[in-house]
């Protein structure tokens, strides 16, 4: 994919074609999107249920956890919107469709993610935005320019981190197509993990799911900075503003893993 801009244009064109196709079933589309919007609230409802029983979770109030949830969830839903079709990679490999992507003059990753585009996933984006609205309205934050800037930068950085995790993890199916469920542990698992303050987890679970898989940089660290909250874990403050850099590093690593995996597939697959 040497021409990112052209590819981005193609991605938009593809998405537009899909949206046109899906809009032909207008009722179905509306039902799906509204349904997705409503059911994503059940996801957040778990957090509300927790706070119906306790005033604080690991030293975080309901509004603070809502901010964690909203940022993590927004980042994830944007990732899901853009590259959610990666979940179908094992199917593409099993039925041989992946081979067809290899004989086209474009990057394979780009082609896999553009195989499908489900606009109903916008429902989840909308729900995340509403929770973000709720969190921002109920929080007592002094909005200095640096905090605003960090909040704005955090969303795409978080989405990039999740996307990198997803790409890297799904590569397991190039070795065994049955392995995709293990990828869920860090993709869906990582998202779930990042929706709660990471100080409630055990130290070694944090090492695995917060730092090695860098989900702590999606919401936890930026939220500490935005909220002006002391880190319960006592980690250096510069970590709280390093998410964009971590995201770039993660994307680089994921790209390398993908290339290695496709090469492995090309020498062993068939």
């Amino acid at each position: 994919m040497g021409e990112p801009l052209e590819s981005a244009g193609l991605f938009l064109r593809l998405s537009a074609a899909r949206i046109r196709a899906q809009l032909q079933y207008r009722t179905s589309f509306a039902l799906q999107t509204v349904g997705m919007f409503l059911i994503s609230f059940l996801d957040f409802a778990a957090i509300l249920v927790i706070f119906a029983n306790v005033p604080q979770l690991g030293g975080w109030s309901v509004s603070e956890v809502a901010l964690l949830y909203a940022i993590s969830s927004l980042a994830f839903s944007l990732t899901d919107l853009a590259i959610g079709h990666l979940d179908y990679l094992p199917q593409l490999i099993r039925d041989g469709s992946f081979d067809l992507l290899l004989v086209r003059p474009r990057g394979t990753l780009f082609q896999v993610v553009t195989q499908d585009f489900q606009i109903r996933r916008i429902g989840k984006v909308a729900q995340s935005l509403m929770v973000l609205g709720y969190a921002l309205a109920t929080l007592d934050v002094i909005w200095t320019p640096d905090r605003v800037a960090l909040l704005i930068a955090t969303i795409p950085a978080g989405a990039l981190i999740f996307a990198s995790i997803w790409v890297a993890a799904i590569c397991i199916v190039f070795w065994t197509t049955e392995g995709n469920e293990a990828a869920n542990a860090v993709t869906y698992g990582g998202t779930f993990f990042a929706q709660y303050p990471i100080n409630i987890y055990d130290r070694w679970l944090r090492r695995f799911l917060a730092y090695l898989i860098p989900t702590a940089f999606v919401a936890y660290f930026p939220c500490l900075y935005i909220l002006g909250k002391a880190d319960p874990l006592g980690l250096p403050v510069w970590l709280q503003v390093s998410s964009p850099l971590v995201a770039l590093a993660a994307a680089l690593a994921a790209g390398l893993i993908w290339r290695t995996a496709v090469r492995h597939y090309q020498s062993a697959g068939g």
Binding site: A17, R18, D95, S97, L100, P105, R106
Partner: peptide, 23 residues
């Protein structure tokens, strides 16, 4: 591979290279 791809056309029997959901 990608340079070659522009010069070749491929059709593999039962495999679908068209986009399933699009006209």
């Amino acid at each position: 591979r990608t340079k070659l791809a522009a010069r070749i056309g491929v059709m593999f029997g039962q495999r679908v290279q068209l986009w399933w959901d699009l006209p």
